[in-house]
Amino acid sequence: MARKAVVLFNLGGPDSLEAVQPFLYNLFMDPAIIRLPKPLRFLVAKLISSRRAPVAQEIYGHLGGSSPLLPQTEAQAAALKTALSDSNPVDEYEIFICMRYWHPLSAQTVQSVKSYGPDEIILVPLYPQYSSTTSASSLADWHGAAKSAQLEVPTATLCCYPLENGLISAYSTLIAEKIEGMDLSRTRILFSAHGLPQKIVDAGDPYQWQIEQTATGIVEKLARPELDWKICYQSRVGPLKWLQPSTDDEIAAAGAAGLSLVILPIAFVSEHSETLVELDIEYAELAKKSGVPHYKRVDTVGVSDDFIAGLADVVLRLTPGAVTSGQGGRICPGKFSDCALAS
């Protein structure tokens, strides 16, 4: 029997209103987010986190004063452990959670994994679509902490899984439930992803391309040729040009056309502030003001059977020492130099 430590990576979120500003500081100190030399990045992170904290505290106030992301991830960890143990009872699996910007951070999780004493470590970002700002940042932070702790264990890494069958099936089922009984000739599906500065994509980040693959995979799975759908991007921050079209612009456009909307958070597998507040409250209000007849939001995949089973299947196929996509090799076109599998 081999002891295997599976580490799930996610963004993290403040566990109290007092934690909002230090959480934001950690976020903006990430060199993958603010791409400036460290002294300048420190000043920018201090400035932005102090200015944004009151607005963010109001957002988390809608959620009871803290982010639900950690308990959501804990539920996914428990479900994944059950699925892995059922599929491969020969080995022992322990699931660990590692958050990028709030507890448990990499250094803490590394120590927990080291105490467990695994024969193999399996790194699994809960970001289906790879980006230098999410999966790459989390993995780099993990490797730095592991090196500092002298944690040297054969490690398998899942870099991305935008076309994983369980993910596609889970979201297809969730959309089908929402559009049941709707007039599809007067309905548009919006696949809303977290935005990214255009310059990061132009520099070789494959995130937008992978978002497009996921959306296309879901539409093909639905097999509804009459479906009207678009990809859009939410959560823009700052003066830079971000990926277009924006979700708020697409909501306004749908209202002007008299179309109902079904919106799916395609880059998120867990509920948090950008689904429960931005989509469910802020964008719902915008839809009403814009004249959208019906506004529905598709849940994230969470602990749905298809998603967890698919993730377990990918984990079981990973090879120690290798970085692998959910499809088993590089899927990004060669122009994306920031692909995890770029040579």
Rank of each mutant, 00 (worst) to 15 (best):
A78Y: 00
P37T: 13
L36G: 06
T82G: 00
K81A: 15
E74Q: 15
A77W: 05
Q76G: 05
L70E: 11
P54H: 00
A75R: 13
K81E: 15
K38W: 14
L40D: 04
P71K: 10
A53I: 05
V55E: 14
L40C: 11
A75M: 06
R35Q: 15
P71N: 06
L47M: 13
L70W: 11
S67N: 02
S67C: 04
A56F: 11
I48Q: 06
L63A: 10
S66W: 05
A75N: 09
G65H: 05
L43R: 12
G65Y: 04
P37D: 12
G61N: 03
A77V: 04
G64D: 02
S67R: 02
I59H: 04
I48K: 12
P71Q: 05
L36V: 11
A77M: 08
H62T: 11
A75K: 12
R52H: 07
A77P: 08
R35A: 13
A56S: 10
A75D: 04
Q76M: 11
K81T: 14
A79N: 07
A78G: 10
S50C: 11
S67G: 03
F42T: 13
G61A: 01
P54Q: 00
L63F: 12
S66A: 15
G64F: 07
I48D: 00
Y60G: 03
V55P: 00
F42V: 10
L69W: 10
A79C: 09
E74M: 11
A53R: 02
L63G: 04
E58S: 12
R51K: 14
L40E: 08
V44F: 05
V44A: 13
G61Q: 02
P39Q: 08
L43P: 07
T73S: 15
R52P: 07
R51S: 07
A78L: 10
G65C: 06
V55W: 08
I59W: 04
Q76P: 03
S50K: 15
G64V: 05
K81I: 09
L36C: 08
L70M: 12
E74N: 01
A53T: 07
